[in-house]
Structures are given as structure tokens and as C-alpha cells.
């Protein structure tokens, strides 16, 4: 990488997406230049080892390369977030099967384990249905609770980090999480899930 390309500010998202559509390999390097740091932080929530994070990052770039085209995301960062989450969770599941070191995700998932019964979410269709119910529930949350829900359960972020980001105490976040869980439990029960 030349010095000039390092000093040059990163491209706009739309320009990077255009590179993907033009099948120009600079799309990967530009994505890496702009989002590498952020994506590694996301991956670290799910898998702790640096080499695993790097592997997830590379798989994310491959995923983005394969998805664009045909997809043209309206928000590249969110798009990459969803890819790296999926990739990292797959990696996490693989690690669990191999009984390797767990991550922050373990704690975050332990909290919601009680909600999901295998017979309710046994296939892709069921996961979609459950996803839709959770989505409807998220819509009913306030802005802060929505942020906490996404941070904790979508991104598996530690409670301390969420508290620090929102400039509130850890116990405040815990209270909000308890309220969110209770609301989610009621929402799932209404839809016929036995909790």
C-alpha cells in the first residue's frame, strides 16, 4: 500500500459500493481501510482470540464481495455489521462445539436462554417467525431500551461498555435489561411461546 493511499481519506460508502459492483478488488481494501477497526471490535464481542477475529473479518469481506451485487445496501456499515455478526456467531458456535474458550456472547445468551424452546425454533422458518416477533417487540421499546437491547443481544456487548456509552451506571443498565426481558417474555407468551 503506497503512502499516498494511506494518507488519502477513506472513500464514501456509495463509492465503495460502486467498486463492489464494478468487481474491483479495491472494494475490499477500501472497506478494510474504513471499517477494519470497527469490525474487529464487533468480532471481538463474539470470539475473543485475535486470529479468530481476523478470520471473521476476512470471511466478512468475502461475504460482502459475494453479496454485492446483487444487493446494494443503503447503509454499508450496518450491512457489514450484520455480516460480521453472522460470521462471528458461526465461529462462536464452532468454538463451542470444539469446547474452546467462550466469549462475552456466552453471558449475553445465557440471559435469554430461558425464552427459547427447541420445539419453537427448530428450523429456519421458526427462526424467521421468532425474529419477526422480536422485531415487533423492539418497535415498542423506547430509544434507549432499543439501544440497550441491540447492544446486549444483537451485538453481545458487555454491560459495562453499554453503561459507559450511555453514561449511566451498571445497575441502571441491569434494570433496563430486566424490564426488556420481562417485556419480551410477555410478548413471546402472547404469541404462544411457553416460557
Amino acid at each position: 500500500m503506497s503512502l499516498l493511499s494511506v494518507l488519502r481519506p477513506p472513500l464514501e460508502d456509495a463509492e465503495i459500493i460502486d467498486l463492489y459492483f464494478a468487481r474491483d478488488e479495491r472494494a475490499i481494501s477500501e472497506t478494510d481501510k474504513k471499517y477494519r477497526k470497527y469490525l474487529l471490535v464487533v468480532a471481538r464481542n463474539f470470539v475473543s482470540a485475535q486470529e479468530d477475529c481476523e478470520e471473521c473479518l476476512n470471511d466478512t469481506y468475502v461475504g460482502a464481495w459475494e453479496a454485492m451485487p446483487p444487493q446494494r445496501p443503503s447503509h454499508l456499515k450496518a450491512f457489514l455489521t450484520s455480516i460480521i455478526r453472522r460470521v462471528s456467531i458461526n465461529k462462536y458456535n464452532e468454538m463451542c462445539r470444539q469446547k474452546r474458550v467462550p466469549s462475552a456472547l456466552t453471558n449475553s445468551f445465557d440471559e435469554i436462554e430461558m425464552f427459547v424452546y427447541e420445539e419453537n425454533a427448530s428450523d429456519e422458518l421458526e427462526a424467521q417467525r421468532l425474529g419477526a416477533i422480536i422485531g415487533e417487540y423492539i418497535k415498542t421499546l423506547g430509544k434507549r431500551q432499543r439501544y440497550i437491547f441491540m447492544s446486549r443481544y444483537y451485538m453481545a456487548e458487555p454491560i459495562d461498555k453499554i453503561a459507559s456509552e450511555l453514561s449511566v451506571s451498571r445497575s441502571t443498565v441491569n434494570k433496563e435489561i430486566a424490564a426488556i426481558k420481562e417485556g419480551l417474555r410477555r410478548a413471546l407468551e402472547r404469541e404462544g411461546y411457553k416460557i
Partner: peptide, 14 residues
């Protein structure tokens, strides 16, 4: 079970 919940979250609105 945890995996299923995680999978469900993959389907929430973008």
C-alpha cells in the same frame, strides 16, 4: 437454544 435465539435475531428488521 441460544443458537436459535441468535438465529432469530438475524431475521429482525434491517
Amino acid at each position: 437454544k441460544k443458537e436459535k435465539f441468535s438465529e432469530a435475531l438475524n431475521h429482525i428488521d434491517y
